[in-house]
Amino acid sequence: MIQQKLREKAKELLSNKTVDLIIGYGNWTLPLRTTPVFIRTPQGTESLVWNSFCENNLVTYLHKFSRFKVGIVVKGCDARSVLALSLEKRFSNQKPLLIGIPCQRIVDRKKLKKAVKGEILKAVEQGELLFVKGEDFEVTLKRDDFLYSVCQTCNHRTPLQADFLIGDPVEESPLLDTHPDVRDFEKKSPEERWTFFEKEMSRCIRCYACREACPMCYCAECFVDSSRPKWIEKSLSSSDLAFYHIVRAYHQTGRCSACGACERACPMDIRLTHLTQKLNQEVKDLYGFETGIQPEIPPPLATFDPKDEQGFIK
C-alpha cells in the first residue's frame, strides 16, 4: 500500500518536473537489504520499494546532489537530519522535497543473521512476521525481535516537516526506554568503560564508512585527512583509533538524529551508537534539546547566550 502510494507520488513529482531526481530505496541483489536508488524518469519509480530493510539514511547523498531539485524518501530519523542540516544552512539554494514515511522500525540484518545457521537466501516481511529461508532451513520470526537498538528506543518515527507524508502518522512510543548499549555502558566504572571502548575500537579498519554514511559528516576536509596540521596518524594504534572515534562522536553533539547509519555501515560490527546516544541523552538533559525536532531552535553547541543558565560556560 505505502509502497504503491510512494511510487505514485514519486511519479507525479517527476512527471510534472517538480523535481529532477528522486532518491529512494530499491531492491538489489542481497536479501535483508535494499539499496539507494536515484530515479530520474516517471517509469523508473516502479523500482521504488518500502519495507523494514530500508536501513540507509539517504540524506547523506544530499550533499552530492545539492545542484539538483531533489525529492528524497525519509524516515523519522532521516527527516531530523534534514532539519539539522537546514539549521546549519546546508540548503541555502534549494531545500530538498521530503517524501516522509512513518517508520515501522528497521530490521537489524546482523542480528537476524546470527539467529539462524547457514546463509539466508530469502527474507520476506508480512506484517509483524519475517519469513526467512536458507538452503536447508525455513523459519518464521517475529519482526520486533530483530530491530536495530536505535529503532527500539525511537520516539520520532513520523517524519517531521515532510512535504508529503505517505501513510498515517504513527504513535510515538518507544519499545525500550534506554538503548541497551547505553544502559550497559552507564553501569560500568570508568575503567570498565574504557576497556569496552578500546575493545570495540580495536576492530576499526579506518575505512570511514561510519563517517561517509552519516549525513552530518560533510566537512570539506575531515580532521583525519588533514596533513597541515596533522592532527592524527594514519595507522591502527589504539591512541589513533580512540582519537578518531571520540572526536567523531563529539562532533555529533547536538547534531545526531539517532538514525544509526554509522553503526550499520561498519563492516567490523563496532558498536558506535552507545556513544552518540549517550551524548544525545546528555544534550537533552542539559539543554532540553533534541536534534531536528524544532526548526527555530539552533543546536546548543552552535549558539551562545550571555544569559546562559549553565554555570560551566561562564
Partner: peptide, 26 residues
C-alpha cells in the same frame, strides 16, 4: 554499506547500459 555490487557493475558494463541500474525486483 549501500550494496554496490561489483557483479552487477560488470554486467552493466558488458551490456553498455545504465537502464535498470536503479534497482529491480529480486
Amino acid at each position: 554499506p549501500v550494496q554496490f555490487d561489483i557483479r552487477e557493475a560488470i554486467r552493466y558494463a558488458s551490456a553498455k547500459r545504465t537502464q535498470g541500474m536503479e534497482g529491480r525486483p529480486r
